[in-house]
Amino acid sequence: MSLASEPAAQPSRKSKSSLSRWGSPALGLLLPLGLAVGWELAVRAGWSNGRLVPPPSVIYATFAELAKTGELQRHAAATLARVVSGFGIGVIVGTVLGAITGYSMLVRRFIDPSLQALRAIPSIAWVPLFILWLGIFEASKVTLIAVGVFFPVYLGVMAAVMSVDRKIVEVGRAFRLSGFKMVRRILLPAVLPAYITALRSGLGLGWMFVVAAEFMGASEGLGFLLVDGQQLGKPAQIVAAIVAFALIGKVTDWLIVGISTPFLRWEDRFKSPAAQD
């Protein structure tokens, strides 16, 4: 049975590679899990009452309670709706203006300095003005989020369009592409990787600004849960809302990555996408 040695050699190699594949995420989980378990044990052992820093079991119970009554879903849906509309508006305006300023030097010289000046203003500073202009309800919140999303998308698209390789554009010209065909067949695929990155940073800022928007007075939303938890002295509710933010934020980011990955398989990257995430 000399053949047996070969199949026998393969599983060991396979298990080695699966070890290195799972080894690094497991290593990353060690620290937070260790801290959580340690804190839980510390509270159980009575070394701390855990009132201001609730142990994981209490957070989980609060989370489950909020989810059971439907409170969590209601607040999460309100927050998600704000982020989605603000993100949508910010992305559309940022993409259009970024593409135009990236393409036309004249327009760039005309509007980019003003936009850069506006960008220097911390966006939260707009809040009083937005409330005066748009009232205390949804419009001012969505506007604030849209402003936050706009700048990274605008900058990313402008930089991406400006840095499209002239030589690649020339290939398009040599094949007599112009106008819409040039955009669809050359410019759009060329800027896609940078565009996805811009969308992801925009989304991150969108999640940041929704909290600020909900702090300024909201009757529902995960940000309301945070304020409510602070005012009523319920730290577990605050942490539960933070966990919900983290989960939903990560899921929306995954959505962008997941939808774009099939279009970016061609990228010649230093590290493969699988190894990066």
Partner: peptide, 30 residues
Amino acid sequence: QPHEKIGIIFQEPRLLPWLSVAGNVGFGLE
């Protein structure tokens, strides 16, 4: 302006990185 009867090959291949080899070869036959 660029003419359909005139083809050009540059010093660098200038292939479009987001198209497969076949997609690049067929680029002018859309």
